[in-house]
Design a protein around this nucleic acid. Structure first.
Lengths: 105, 105
DNA sequence: TCCATGGGCAACCATAAGGTTGCATATTGG
DNA sequence: CCAATATGCAACCTTATGGTTGCCCATGGA
């Protein structure tokens, strides 16, 4: 999962992913959305590829980049434990609030 | 979220987080669990702190590290969109399978 | 009081990220 | 065929990661 988290750890890359949910796009199309050079975007794409979050296939002289969100399911599964954690924390906070309320009034 | 994802992008740091769900632990206690130096672990802790995933408070000569999973909720919320995405992908895969089944048999 | 223990800080090193510019190459439309 | 278009690759720079070792300092007990 290291590569997946690393891929998701930069706002530019997350924006790329978010955009790709609407459908595949060319490298140039993606890079035109950002104020950085095409090559910089290409490096971001390489990191996304390493994290298996995108798939690139060539079509003529262009490269079509498409989303491959599957690895995010592992992240989701990892998060599940914390979901339980923060829910229980919220629960105890709620109980504390109730306790204070009971004592106060 | 950059800092949160960065913090979660290393297996050692994720293991630290996982362990902290059981309760707070000292810096030394944590570092003894890993085959790397105490200082290396301290650096990991600093990254976790930057991602607001832990809180450190001193108690005498020790430092107690405790989990603060709240930032992960943002990650969870970000993931929600992809949950929808991969579900719809799975759904179309299922439909395709049914289609093939229908045609084949 | 004294020293073992818990930890921080700094220096140093290698590698990865995140950018840039410049140049090479393959298609595609006229 | 030729020029414009879409990308890739390489070199180079800066800063962040991930480790190490060495040294310093506070504190808690015997």
């Amino acid at each position: 999962m290291d590569a997946t988290f690393t891929a998701a750890s930069h706002h530019v890359r997350r924006r790329i992913l978010d955009r790709l949910r609407r459908g595949p796009e060319t490298v140039g199309g993606i890079s035109r959305r950002f104020p950085i050079s095409r090559q910089a975007v290409a490096k971001h794409l390489r990191l996304l590829e390493r994290g298996r979050l995108i798939v690139v296939r060539r079509s003529g002289r262009e490269r079509l980049v498409s989303l491959s969100a599957r690895p995010l399911r592992e992240v989701d599964r990892w998060l599940a434990g914390y979901r339980r954690y923060w829910r229980s924390r919220l629960l105890s906070l709620k109980r504390l609030a109730e306790e204070i309320e009971r004592r106060g009034g």
